[in-house]
Computed example of a mutant assay.
Amino acid sequence: MGSKKNPAARRAQKNARRTTRKQKGTRSTITASRTARGRSLFDLNPPGTFYQEWDTPTGNDKELLDTATTAFGADSDEATTTRLILEYRDIYGPRIPIAAAAHLDLIVRDTDLAAELATSMGSSMNDVRESLHSLHAQGMLLVADDESLWMTIPPGTPYSAAGGQWAFVEQKVAAPSN
């Protein structure tokens, strides 16, 4: 079913476009909107193996990055990973689903989804990546156990599945091939 006939798909696309427009040049709108809602992805308790472990980096960004760069060098894999985790923390909040967020980055890199969205929305690949992570942080996208990406409706909303459970609405992309 295309997005024209699927209200949930239309809402998700509208939210992605709105998020992209708001984020131009800054991620502060992501953090502000998450704080205003008061519900992080962790609070929504998403199902699946990608959401079993959550990383909670402690310390401020400068301390963490300084520690990694001093110990391993500014261009090291460890410093790059630290920068990525700090970026995730800006988007997801203090509790980060590292496996799911990293897999979403693989989907962005290894599938046509991000390129198709960038073309259709007239946005850069980086803006699309940030929008996808923002939607993921809000529970509008989830990584399923089969490594595919799904548009979802979080529990506790009027469009949730019966009993206020997660609703998996539409598969956006299959698992990336290795």
Rank of each mutant, 00 (worst) to 15 (best):
residue 125 M to K: 13
residue 167 A to H: 13
residue 138 Q to S: 01
residue 126 N to Y: 09
residue 120 S to W: 04
residue 158 P to M: 01
residue 141 L to Y: 05
residue 143 V to I: 08
residue 128 V to H: 02
residue 133 H to S: 05
residue 128 V to Q: 04
residue 165 Q to S: 14
residue 126 N to Q: 12
residue 151 M to W: 02
residue 147 E to Y: 15
residue 124 S to Y: 09
residue 166 W to S: 04
residue 155 P to K: 07
residue 157 T to E: 14
residue 134 S to Q: 07
residue 148 S to N: 06
residue 164 G to Q: 11
residue 156 G to P: 08
residue 128 V to R: 02
residue 123 S to W: 05
residue 125 M to D: 08
residue 160 S to P: 14
residue 140 M to E: 13
residue 139 G to V: 14
residue 169 V to E: 06
residue 159 Y to P: 00
residue 147 E to C: 14
residue 117 L to H: 07
residue 157 T to R: 14
residue 123 S to N: 14
residue 160 S to I: 10
residue 125 M to C: 01
residue 127 D to N: 02
residue 170 E to K: 15
residue 144 A to I: 02
residue 141 L to H: 06
residue 137 A to M: 03
residue 124 S to E: 12
residue 152 T to R: 05
residue 129 R to G: 11
residue 141 L to D: 07
residue 141 L to T: 07
residue 158 P to A: 08
residue 148 S to Q: 09
residue 159 Y to F: 03
residue 160 S to H: 11
residue 123 S to Y: 10
residue 143 V to E: 03
residue 157 T to H: 05
residue 147 E to V: 14
residue 153 I to M: 02
residue 126 N to R: 03
residue 170 E to I: 12
residue 169 V to N: 14
residue 120 S to Q: 15
residue 119 T to H: 15
residue 155 P to S: 12
residue 136 H to K: 08
residue 155 P to Y: 09
residue 125 M to Y: 03
residue 116 E to H: 13
residue 133 H to W: 03
residue 165 Q to I: 03
residue 152 T to D: 06
residue 138 Q to V: 02
residue 159 Y to R: 07
residue 130 E to I: 00
residue 128 V to S: 02
residue 139 G to P: 14
residue 132 L to E: 08
residue 117 L to G: 04
residue 147 E to S: 15
residue 132 L to W: 05
residue 163 G to R: 10
residue 141 L to E: 05
residue 143 V to F: 00
residue 127 D to L: 07
residue 123 S to I: 05
residue 147 E to P: 09
residue 148 S to F: 07
residue 128 V to L: 01
residue 160 S to V: 13
residue 161 A to H: 02
residue 123 S to E: 14
residue 141 L to R: 04
residue 166 W to D: 04
residue 117 L to K: 07
residue 147 E to L: 15
residue 125 M to S: 11
residue 160 S to L: 09
residue 133 H to L: 08
residue 132 L to Y: 04
residue 157 T to A: 11
residue 144 A to V: 00
residue 148 S to M: 08
residue 121 M to P: 08
residue 134 S to N: 10
residue 128 V to F: 04
residue 125 M to T: 06
residue 157 T to G: 04
residue 154 P to S: 06
residue 166 W to Q: 01
residue 128 V to P: 05
residue 136 H to V: 05
